[in-house]
Design a protein around this nucleic acid. Structure first.
Length: 373
DNA sequence: AAATCGGGGGC
DNA sequence: GCCCCAGATTT
């Protein structure tokens, strides 16, 4: 059998046969997940949002706790924003959490509290794009919609042996066309969409794919061409910048100063210790002093260094240097870089949502004697 | 089309 | 260290 040319628009074989083989494999062996045991659109919606760019094993604990705390859309819509953010703490991509809460309130106000069943109405909810909308409507209501997530992209780019980078619009359009064709021919939309993602997560994995055990091996053009390991084609990412961040743990008696980041942008809505990026020709102590002047309008005495924490974000890295500080003088704090600020005891930190690097810092502060020098 | 947006899994 | 993950939104 000859290799399939990359221009080939459709599947290597009948898409009906493909979907059937995939469904047989899925029904015989698949992982158990709580969101596969329900048809509650709210629970499925929640799972789909948590699962965006996040692996199944990471989501499990968050999902159960979240549902137990807010069992219905009405419960979530009535929740306190900070409590919801706290439940999301550590899961990342916090705009998902803000959008989830906003969508819950929109469903209450515009859809009588019932999750919509129409694709366009689902797509209009914040945080829900084309793929997530299709996933929710398929898994909750059994509707027939295509999805295209990272797993499906990898599976299809191998099935069709796509030689162009998967970041372009032409390839994206083609992948959507193929996933639409497949779901259109599948015996059961629920099983099919679950099965393609399961295949990508367990068999058709990025490195060392288990092609010998693949249920749709005979349909795979990359398998025939021997190019499985080269698909999907990705462009190499440039190295990310590394910033030096200096932060102030300002102590007054048994209390510490913390502030809340603006809702938009990086780590939006989370709490943190004040600080910022080290400028050229500036010591870290000078950075702490300057940031407290600029962000809080106060002068501090910079004391003992208590932590040095490295952390990686999606598009840059930081080393966070933390110093104990005390305020010098009596100026009131003007939290210019924050939407709220508080003096709290160490025990009260637990009620607020912090980014991971700040959580690491707090763990150190909790075990410290809390003296300046 | 490219950049932004977290944190952890797994090698 | 690196790539990837049940992507969406903004620029």
């Amino acid at each position: 059998m000859t290799a399939v040319p990359p221009e080939r628009a459709d599947l290597y074989g009948s898409s009906r046969d493909f979907a059937t083989a995939l469904a047989v494999w899925f029904n015989s062996s698949h992982r158990k997940m709580p969101w596969r045991e329900t048809r509650d659109p709210y629970a499925i919606w929640l799972s789909e949002i948590m699962l965006q760019q996040t692996q199944v094993e990471t989501v499990r604990g968050y999902y159960d706790r979240f549902l137990a705390k807010w069992p219905t859309i009405a419960d979530l819509a009535a929740a306190v924003d900070g409590d919801v953010m706290k439940a999301w703490e550590g899961l990342g991509y916090y705009a998902r959490c803000r959008n989830l809460l906003a969508a819950a309130r929109k469903i209450v106000s515009e859809h009588d509290g019932l999750f919509p069943r129409e694709f366009d109405q689902v797509l209009a909810l914040p945080g829900i794009g084309r793929s997530t909308a299709g996933a929710i409507l398929t898994f909750a209501f059994g509707q027939r919609h295509p999805l295209l997530d990272g797993n499906v992209k990898r599976v299809l780019s191998r099935l069709l042996d796509i030689a162009e980078p998967v970041t372009g619009k032409a390839v994206d359009d083609r992948l959507w066309a193929v996933t639409s064709q497949l779901i259109g021919d599948a015996p059961d939309p629920w099983v099919h969409n679950q099965a393609v993602m399961e295949l990508g997560a367990r068999q058709c994995v990025p490195r060392e794919p288990k092609c010998l055990l693949c249920p749709v091996r005979s349909f795979c053009a990359a398998q025939a061409a021997g190019t499985v390991l080269q698909r999907p084609v990705k462009v190499k990412k440039p190295p990310v910048p590394h910033k030096q961040i200096a932060v102030a743990v300002i102590v007054a008696g048994d209390k510490l100063y913390v502030q809340q980041r603006p809702h938009e942008g990086l780590l939006g809505g989370l709490w943190e210790f004040p600080g910022g990026k080290q400028e050229d020709s500036e010591t870290l102590e000078e950075t702490v002093l300057r940031e407290c002047q600029e962000e809080l309008g106060i002068t501090v005495a910079v004391g003992r260094k208590i932590a040095e924490i490295r952390h990686a974000y999606s598009h840059f890295r930081i080393t966070m240097h933390a110093y104990f500080c005390v305020q010098v003088g009596q100026e009131p704090i003007a939290a210019r870089a924050a939407i709220a600020s508080r003096w709290v005891t160490r025990d009260a930190l637990d009620a607020l949502a912090f980014p991971k690097a700040n959580k690491d810092l707090i763990a150190i502060v909790m075990g410290d004697h809390l003296e300046l020098t």
